[in-house]
Amino acid sequence: MRFSNRIWNKIAIFLLLAVLTSSCVTMGRVELEVLKPATSPLAIQMENIRLHNDFLKQNQKQKADFENLVKYDKFRIDSLMSVELVKVVGEEIKATELARVTEIDSLGKYTAPGRNALILKNVDIVSEVETEPIYVNSRGAYYAAVRVPYKIEWEILHQSEKKNVTYHDTVWAEGYRRSFDKLADLVRFNEVMKYIIRKTGVEFAHQVAPHWKLTNRVYYRSGNNDFQRAAYYMDNGAYDKAAEIWKQYSGSANRSLAGNAYLNLAVYAELKGDIEKAMDYAAKAAESKNKLALNYLNTLKNRQKEIKQLLEE
Rank of each mutant, 00 (worst) to 15 (best):
Tyr262His: 12
Arg177Gly: 10
Leu263Arg: 00
Val208Arg: 09
Leu42Thr: 03
Ser40Trp: 09
Asp185Cys: 01
Glu191Met: 07
Pro41Leu: 15
Val25Ser: 04
Thr170Ala: 14
Gln159Asp: 14
Glu161Val: 15
Thr299Asp: 13
Leu214Ala: 08
Ile307Gln: 01
Val208Ser: 04
Arg178Trp: 11
Met46Arg: 08
Ser22Asp: 02
Ser250Ala: 15
Ile134Cys: 02
Thr111Leu: 12
Lys162Ser: 04
Asp185Thr: 03
Val136His: 02
Val208Gln: 04
Asn48Trp: 10
Leu257Gln: 04
Asp240Ser: 12
Gln159Ile: 06
Tyr143Ser: 01
Thr299Glu: 15
Arg2Lys: 11
Leu80Thr: 12
Gly251Asn: 13
Glu132Thr: 11
Phe204Arg: 00
Gly223Arg: 08
Ile307Val: 13
Ala141Lys: 05
Pro149Tyr: 15
Glu276Cys: 04
Gly175Cys: 09
Asn68Cys: 05
Lys199Gly: 03
Thr102Glu: 10
Lys94Trp: 05
Gln228Arg: 07
Ser23Cys: 08
Asp240Gly: 07
Ser252Gly: 08
Gly237Glu: 08
Lys194Ser: 13
Leu294Cys: 04
Val25Tyr: 06
Ala141Glu: 09
Gly201Gln: 01
Lys182Ile: 04
Ile104Glu: 02
Val202Leu: 10
Gly251Trp: 11
Lys194Gln: 03
Ile196Ser: 04
Asp235Asn: 13
Ala238Glu: 06
Ser138Val: 11
Lys36Arg: 14
Glu31Ile: 02
Gly114Leu: 13
Leu265Arg: 05
Asp240Gln: 11
Leu310Phe: 02
Phe227Cys: 03
Ser22Thr: 12
Tyr239Ser: 04
Leu294Val: 12
Ile104Trp: 08
Thr299Gly: 05
Leu297Asp: 08
Lys63His: 03
Ala112Gln: 06
Gln248Tyr: 10
Ala285Asn: 05
Lys301Pro: 00
Arg188Phe: 12
Gln159Ala: 14
Asn116Thr: 12
Ile196Thr: 01
Val208Ile: 14
Arg303Phe: 15
Lys213Asp: 10
Gly108Ile: 10
Glu270Asn: 11
Ser222Gly: 08
Met279Leu: 14
Glu103Gln: 04
Gln60Leu: 08
Gly140Val: 13
Lys87Pro: 04
Gly201Pro: 01
Ile44His: 02
Val218Met: 14
Arg217Ile: 14
Val218Phe: 01
Ser252Trp: 07
Met46Phe: 07
Val34Glu: 09
Arg229Thr: 12
Ile134Gln: 00
Ala144His: 04
Leu107Cys: 02
Tyr195Val: 01
Lys301Asn: 08
Ser252Met: 01
Arg217Met: 15
Lys87Trp: 05
Lys284Glu: 06
Ile196Ala: 11
Gln228Tyr: 09
Lys36Tyr: 06
Ala12Ile: 14
Val34Ala: 06
Leu107Gly: 11
Asn295Arg: 15
Leu157Ser: 00
Asn190His: 07
Ala18Glu: 03
Glu132Pro: 07
Tyr72Thr: 01
Pro133Gly: 05
Tyr150Asn: 08
Leu257Pro: 00
Arg29Phe: 04
Ser22Asn: 02
Arg229Asp: 03
His168Leu: 15
Ser138Tyr: 13
Asn302Gly: 07
Ile125Ala: 05
Gln304Tyr: 14
Ser40His: 06
Ser252Pro: 02
Leu271Phe: 13
Gln60Ala: 05
Thr166Ile: 15
Glu287Tyr: 13
Asn190Trp: 00
Ser250Val: 01
Val146Leu: 09
Ala283Gln: 06
Val86Gly: 12
Ala99Pro: 00
